[in-house]
Write a protein that binds this DNA or RNA. Structure first.
Length: 918
RNA sequence: GGGCGAUUAGCUCAGUUGGGAGAGCGCCGCACUCACAUUGCGGAGGUCACUGGUUCGAGACCGGUAUCGCCCACCA
């Protein structure tokens, strides 16, 4: 092995081999385990959130694959209707062309081309992350068979009356020219104004004052509403207003939607342009005056003066005109929530159009039940509340989009406007007995992207065909995703899965947090704080990073600030850390459900961890060059590390089962670094390098080194697959294994390694001994290399036995020159002291140690012990404690008091000795 | 307006049924021929946001307060 760990040299080579060998495909044996990937947007690139999520899924996948499950991680991508169409439109615009200019067919063709170019990028990035997805099953939401599934679902829902077409108010994006679902509209609070207008009574004897944040909509008013119990206006209900500028007579109606406390208690009602007013309009049978066209400019149903004006121009004009008429009472600053399209960022308008809807209640009920009954479990459990909240007040889902990129709605119209829904035009004619000369036109619209996403868990398995994959891998085991798409995606998959695939789509939903930057900010292009996972893997120089962060900004004026912040945070660019270090970082940060600040310090530390593992393996290899025929004899140290490994295996299993990758990573880190490297490798040296050790003992150590390393590699593999594979390949022959890859070996089981509490206690004694010496050394500034003589006072029989047994370890690892056991009345020279149980470790000073420093050191220990003692005695003096606490706890406290007292006595004695010196 | 989450070392975060607060990074000191300076050894550093309560005992359980964050919602 090379002296240093260099991820660049190994990762891509290893991945290529895994993939070529087809090892990511399900084994076909064992209980099925399946995760479907949340399909990334085909035009996108892998961001930190993906990398995080993919790390979790890959770790779970590899863990279960190694555990003998028939494991499938299903890959694929989403066509992402609006997002993709926008990207390609922007390209066309840059070429001086447009979607309209090239026409629908050519445009869609162009998007397909772009998909081919762009889709490869995510695949490449997934490969760099080490994702063990089964590429042979790669799917795209617009593949023929997946599209067929979409059509089938649509037709079935329509036939059942669960999809309907209707003219109602929708959220209309006047720039993208499409309807949006409620979820795609973000409510943002923004400063604005509240205008107060006087509406004259038709009778000419007075007026009412109404307030609005959208004056232009008054052109579509069809009533003024007051509260039924509002005495101020009770005698006006039923009378009429003469709507200014329009001249229309509109009624004054009573409706308890109106809050009499707010403003004047009078509300203008615009049924065609406000969701509340729409409802009021229905209740009072008011006409709906649509005054906008699809650009949200004023249409021809408004007075001529306003026709063709953009909504905001019209707003100014309406206000000015009303003011000129003396009807503007006042304008006040007002913060209001503004609805904006999540893609375009434009203010959307409630707009009357024909759209397709899913009647959602009948689908939602069983989906709620599935979570209530525990057939689906959220991890952490808390998210089920969020799910229930939304599901209980869910509204019908607008699924039609006025786009060109997506699944075309399988509905056809004849010249009379009759609607026919079926899989194809031919199927329509067949089903409805329509002759070939009856003209049919297919609906122009496409479906919401999330409609096909909702089918993903079964459409990728070949549904509606009853395929083997569907039988085996549906329902999936777990869905790994972010909380931000619980409504968009998770809920809808549950509804559609129950409806069409006959069962829940997955048993568990593991919700992870959002990756934020080091300051807790959301990563976004416009903030210029985005990190590219590949830049963390490969490294990137400052100039390239600056360019990536500032090119193509929507708001170019932010460029200097982004540059400055980037230069400050990454003066040298970003180092190369490798995919394993990145993955370990994600795993270590994957605490359940909360957002994660990505801290570069962590990834650096975990690269060091990889290097540590690498070098530990080198040590093992160096010491196991030659095969020996001797029968291995295990030492206490050998049995100790095996027992510790056993505990680590138990912990890792436990943590994986609860999705606590952070704790699994922590346990593995601790074992690898602080037990295997810090102690066991050191403890093995005296045996392997000493002439007096027998060949059997050496062989025991060699076997242990190899056994533990090999098992550790398997244990670590789900999190750091590359480095473990590389080392494993170079380790397997020494262990006598034939396997082709660590990823195909069994995951370590508890009983692979024996428990041994006696060995654990013994080696703990050795460690305490050495730590005591080291503490003296460290605090007295004695060089680590200097061997020290040690005297023991109060050594009991066990201490003596252990000393006998492990003297060589103490000498070598603790750098102890000699150990001398003092008899009870032997006088010791002035010494520095450490305690090991009741035994005192004395290091004679002989000019090495400063008396004052030692006095200070002991003084500090004494103070701490006294404080602890006082606390414990106090507790035991409390009769409530003694009477109520469990006997075991009381006993523990009593033991503690005795220990403290003995130790205090010893330290006091030692301090006296020092005093007598000076 | 409703709901959820967070608050623990300088920073980023663990802390699983209540029984003497931990890690990584950073900081200070000592040590480079012997797997690893991407290292080793030692050390300093915490009123567990505040406040009541339950309990023999609370970082953890219950009530309240403060600050920060997120989600949902039709007040013109």
């Amino acid at each position: 092995m090379e002296k240093s760990y260099r991820p660049r040299d190994i990762e891509q080579r290893i991945y290529r081999r895994w993939e070529e060998q087809g090892w990511f495909a399900p084994s076909g044996e064992g209980e099925p385990y399946c995760i479907v990937i949340p399909p990334p947007n085909v035009t996108g690139t892998l961001h930190m959130g993906h990398a995080f999520q993919d790390t979790i899924m890959d770790a779970l996948t590899r863990y279960h694959r190694m555990s003998g499950r028939n494991t499938l991680w299903q890959p694929g991508m989403d066509h992402a209707g609006i997002a993709t169409q926008m990207v390609v439109e922007r390209q066309l615009n840059a070429e001086g062309s447009s979607r309209i200019a090239v026409g629908r067919e050519a445009f869609v063709e162009r998007v397909w081309q772009w998909k081919e170019e762009s889709g490869g990028q995510i695949s490449r990035q997934l490969r760099r992350m080490g994702a063990s997805v089964d590429w042979s099953r790669d799917r795209f939401t617009m593949d023929d068979d997946l599209s067929a599934a979409v059509t089938r679902v649509f037709v079935d829902l329509y036939d059942e009356g669960l999809i309907y077409r209707g003219k109602r108010l929708v959220n209309w994006d006047p720039v993208l020219h499409t309807a949006l679902s409620d979820l795609e509209v973000l409510q943002e609070e923004e400063p604005g104004q509240l205008w107060h207008f006087r509406y004259p009574l038709a009778s000419g004897d007075g007026h009412l004052t109404v307030a609005t944040t959208r004056p232009e909509t008054m052109l579509g008013d069809s009533a003024v509403a007051v509260h039924p119990d509002d005495e101020r206006y009770s005698d006006l209900v039923g009378r009429e207003i003469e709507l200014p500028l329009v001249g229309r007579r509109i009624p004054i109606v009573a409706d308890d939607y109106v809050d009499p406390e707010f403003g004047t208690g009078c509300v203008k009602i615009t049924p065609a342009h406000d969701f509340n007013d729409y409802e009021v309009g229905l209740r009072h049978d008011l006409p709906q005056y649509n005054i906008f066209d699809h650009n949200a400019a004023i249409n021809d149903s408004a007075p001529e003066a306003y026709r063709g004006l953009d909504r905001y121009v019209a707003r100014d004009r309406v206000v000015a005109d009303l003011e000129a008429l003396g009807l503007l009472e006042k304008v006040e600053d007002y913060r209001r929530t503004v609805p904006r399209g999540d893609r375009s960022g434009e203010i959307v308008e409630p707009y009357l159009t024909d759209q397709w809807y899913v009647k959602i209640r009948p689908l939602a009920e069983p989906a709620i039940e599935a979570v209530e009954s525990g057939r689906i479990r959220f991890v952490p459990e808390n998210w089920s509340k969020t799910y229930f909240d939304w599901m209980h007040k869910i509204q019908d889902w607008c699924i039609s989009r006025q786009l060109w990129w997506g699944h075309r709605i399988p509905a056809w119209y004849d010249d009379d406007g009759n609607i026919y829904v079926a899989e194809s035009e031919a199927a329509v004619r067949d089903r409805h007995g329509l002759a070939a000369d009856v003209r049919l036109e297919q609906d122009e619209d496409v479906l919401d992207t999330w409609f096909s996403s909702a089918l993903w868990p079964f459409s990728t398995m070949g549904w509606p065909e009853q395929t083997a994959a569907l039988k085996t891998f549906y329902p999936g085991s777990v869905l790994v995703t972010g909380f931000d798409i619980i409504f968009f995606w998770v809920a809808r998959m549950i509804m559609m899965g129950l409806k069409f695939a006959g069962d829940v789509p997955f048993r568990e939903v593991y919700i992870h947090g959002l990756i934020r930057d080091q300051d807790g900010q959301k990563m976004s292009k416009s903030k210029g704080n985005v990190l590219d996972p590949l830049d963390l893997i490969d490294g990137v120089d400052l100039e390239t990073l600056l360019d990536k962060r500032t090119r193509g900004l929507m708001q170019p004026h932010l460029k200097p600030a982004i540059e400055k912040a980037t230069r400050k945070q990454f003066p040298q660019g970003i180092d190369e850390y490798g995919a394993d270090a990145l993955r370990f970082t994600f795993a270590a940060l994957a605490t359940t459900g909360r957002d994660i600040r990505f801290d570069l310090g962590r990834i650096e530390g975990y690269k060091h961890f990889c290097n540590k593992l690498w070098n530990a393996a080198r040590y093992v290899h160096m010491n196991t060059e030659y095969a020996s025929t001797a029968t291995p004899e295990l030492s206490d140290a050998d049995r100790w590390i095996r027992a510790r490994l056993r505990r680590t295996i138990a912990a890792v299993h436990e943590h994986f089962s609860r999705y606590r990758l952070d704790l699994a990573a922590q346990a593995l880190y601790d074992f690898t670094w602080h037990e295997f490297c810090d102690w066991y490798l050191e403890l093995s040296k005296p045996v392997l390098q000493a002439h007096e050790a027998s060949e059997e003992q050496k062989e025991g150590a060699r076997h242990t080194l190899l056994d533990v390393l090999e098992a550790l590699l398997r244990l670590l593999h789900p999190i750091v697959p590359f480095i473990t594979e590389e080392i494993w390949q170079q380790t397997k022959l020494r262990v006598g294994l034939e396997g082709e890859s660590v990823m195909l070996r069994p995951f370590p089981q508890l009983d692979d390694f024996a428990a041994d509490e006696a060995a654990e206690q013994d080696i703990d004694w050795v460690r305490e001994f050495i730590l005591g010496i080291r503490r003296i050394r460290g605090e007295m500034d004695i060089p680590p290399g200097k061997a020290l003589p040690v005297l023991l006072r109060n050594a009991d029989v066990d201490d003596r036995k252990r000393l006998e047994r492990h003297g060589a370890l103490l000498a070598r690892v603790g750098r102890v020159e000699s150990v001398c056991v003092l008899a009870g009345d032997d006088e010791a020279p002035p010494s520095a002291t450490a305690l090991l149980g009741d035994m005192q470790l004395l290091v004679p000073m002989r000019g090495l140690i400063d008396v004052d420093a030692e006095r200070a050191r002991l003084g500090k220990q004494r103070d701490k012990l006294s404080a602890d003692l006082a606390k414990s005695e106090n507790k035991l003096g409390n009769s409530n404690f003694v009477n109520n606490a469990p006997a075991e706890v009381v006993r523990q406290e009593q033991t503690r008091v005795q220990d403290f007292k003995r130790q205090l006595a010893q330290i006091g004695e030692q301090l006296e000795r020092l005093d007598s010196l000076s």
